[in-house]
Design a protein around this nucleic acid. Structure first.
Length: 565
RNA sequence: GCGCCCGUAGCUCAGUGGAUAGAGCGUCGGCCUCCGGAGCCGAAAGCGUAGGUUCAAUUCCUAUCGGGCGUACCA
């Protein structure tokens, strides 16, 4: 991903250095100082340690093998050959195992600051995505219950990833797939019917594998208050769909509301049922049959998954004639691609990982490339309470809902918490800690930096300080804590790109903590208001840029940037 | 058994094959006559184990141990 880089001052400098290094290699090869077949890929990066210069490259180390010389010897030769002046380099040193470290001529960081301020809210946006259509499908929970912690994690990750992709220049849509067809809806209907009868005083058994949670009792109470008991006399096959229809509409509305309260809004709510009704599911099965991917066994239709390397085959249509979830999912993904998405990202729980390879295989079978379907698996959220694992179960109705999470922990803290962890780490979530010590959440560290800046800006306003872009003397910014803050700020566009293309929104949470740390460090060393006039103005520009980036980054992960806390 | 994911500080977790592996919480010690102390500075403490590839491995590969998940005509 080293070529994924924003067109910023930093990006331009990296390109310039890369060209200068490549030119130097070509020159010394022409002089027979070095012999090699081809240039290796090398990096030009901003070193983690400021002591290692403004930029550094590993080119000499990468070329060690090709040149048959030790890295430091190559570095000596290359360093002598680089045209420093035209590359804007003030000094070069060779360090460590063979890094070449560059120090740039002065004020390049100040130019970065100017650029950040000039770009304003757009700083962080780029066109890496070139407008390619990409879809992120996430949560897609069964509409038979309430959203739980796992859904909350998926919502935080999916929504943030979608925003970051948008910032990186992709054309993004968020989608929720409503599983409103199939077996679980049948079970759902049976459960609703049982509750209906029970609420009206009938002594009926509740289905063993039904949905036990209390919320569907509430739904049926509402149903009865609106429609009375007239369905007691109806045939089950007539009234069950009526119950299901009624309850689904309400459950889906609840889910929408819960997600909206969590700051997540979808572009499309896609109904599985429409795929069955339109014949899309039947058509894709027919298509696969025609293509020779399907065989009959024990009365069912099977997809030959072994043909694309799976261990076993999968049923597409059951012996009872009802298509499986797998068949519907193939039709669903065909539909996605027919809508013009070049890439489709699905965010699934780890319990679905067995589904990944066969879905990718199926994509090949229906004429798409398996890499067009990316599945981001997220590991489970394990809840702790009173020091013990809290086992979540829809069956017994014991789980913590998204609504409760937002109520107890708060939206900002919850979203930050989920997005700061990589999707593939198993999270231990201590409910007691989350409820009692929310101030320990790193989100407040970041938000505090923003609020602190807003407070300083307010002070500056009363002190009649207002920087003008064209006259502010940014060259007065020379303190190490100031410069390292600018350095960190200038990274923002590349951080967004990295998070987007690697599907790692947690990078932004980490980055924001680094920005906040750099700011707090600056604050401890430098005053803004009360210094000499021009210096105050310059620092005002610096903290404005900082606030702008913190706000932008928090927004990208769905967290607010309060001006006061 | 087989497959996927994860083992990093006392705890929860970051870490694009590179230079001295980071943060929060916890522990210990400093810092407000000064823009918000929800802050800053410092200390102790770590890459499960064993091989391999590489100039260079926490990162890639293999094995092994430990944890999670899956292995349905469920989704």
């Amino acid at each position: 991903m080293k070529d994924s880089q924003a067109s910023t001052i930093i990006g331009n400098i990296k390109n310039t250095l890369r060209q200068a290094i490549t030119a130097a290699f070509e020159q010394v090869r022409a002089n027979d100082q070095l012999t090699y077949e081809a240039m290796a890929d090398f990096l030009v990066e901003v070193p983690r340690e400021a002591a290692h210069g403004d930029f550094s490259t590993n080119a000499a180390m990468m070329m060690a093998k090709a040149c048959h010389k030790p890295p430091r010897v190559i570095a000596e030769i290359i360093t002598a050959a680089i045209d420093q002046k035209s590359a804007g380099v003030s000094s070069i040193e060779i360090a460590g195992p063979g890094f070449i470290n560059f120090r740039m001529q002065t004020d390049w960081l100040n130019k970065c600051l100017t650029e950040i301020i000039a770009a304003g809210e757009n700083f962080g946006r780029s066109q890496i995505g070139k407008g390619h259509k990409i879809q992120v499908e996430f949560v897609s929970a069964n509409p038979t219950g309430e959203l739980h912690m796992g859904n909350a994690r998926g919502a935080a990750i999916g929504d943030s990833l979608a925003t970051l992709l948008d910032m990186a220049g992709f054309s993004v849509e968020r989608e929720f797939y409503i599983n409103d067809a199939g077996n679980q809806i049948e079970k759902f209907a049976l459960s609703l019917e049982a509750r209906y009868l029970q609420l009206l005083g009938k002594n009926v058994d509740f289905p063993e594998d039904g949905y036990h949670s209390n919320d569907i009792i509430r739904v049926m109470e509402q149903f009865i208050s609106e429609n009375g008991d007239k369905y007691l006399s109806y045939e089950p096959e007539i009234r069950k769909p009526i119950f299901a229809e009624y309850a689904l509409a309400r459950k889906i509305a609840d889910i929408k509301q819960a997600l909206a309260d969590f700051g997540v809004k979808y572009d499309v709510w896609f109904s599985e049922r429409t795929l069955h009704e339109s014949g899309a599911v039947a058509n894709i099965v027919k298509y696969l049959q025609d293509q020779g991917w399907v065989y009959s066994k024990d009365g069912a239709l099977w997809l030959d998954c072994q043909r694309f390397g799976e261990e076993k085959d999968e049923v597409l249509v059951r012996a009872n004639g009802i298509p499986t979830y797998f068949a519907a999912d193939i039709a669903y993904h065909q539909n996605k691609f027919q809508r013009g998405f070049e890439t489709v990202i699905d965010i699934w729980g780890a319990d679905h990982h067995g589904h990944v390879a066969r879905m990718k295989g199926a994509m090949e079978a229906i004429g798409y490339q398996s890499k067009q379907l990316e599945v981001l698996l997220m590991q489970f959220v394990r809840l702790y309470q009173n020091g013990e694992i809290l086992k979540m179960s829809k069956r017994t109705g014991t789980y913590v809902t998204l609504n409760e999470l937002v109520e107890d922990v708060g939206r900002d803290a919850a979203r930050f918490f989920f997005v700061m962890r990589s999707a593939d780490s198993l999270i231990d979530f201590d409910l007691d800690l989350a409820k009692s010590q929310t101030a320990d959440n790193p989100v407040y560290y970041v938000q505090y930096a923003h609020a602190r800046i807003c407070s300083i800006l307010a002070n500056a306003a009363t002190a009649d300080l207002s920087p003008q872009a064209d006259t502010t003397k940014l060259s007065l910014i020379t303190e190490p804590s100031e410069l390292s803050l600018i350095r960190k700020l200038a990274d923002y566009p590349d951080e967004v790109i990295f998070a987007a293309v690697n599907r790692e929104p947690q990078r932004i949470a980490t980055y924001l903590q680094e920005v906040a740390a750099a700011f707090h460090n600056f604050y401890a060393h430098c005053r803004v208001v009360g210094e000499e006039h021009d210096l105050s103005l310059a620092r005002l520009s610096l903290i404005q840029a900082t606030a702008q980036i913190i706000k932008s980054g928090l927004k990208a992960i769905g967290v607010s940037a309060p001006e006061k806390m």
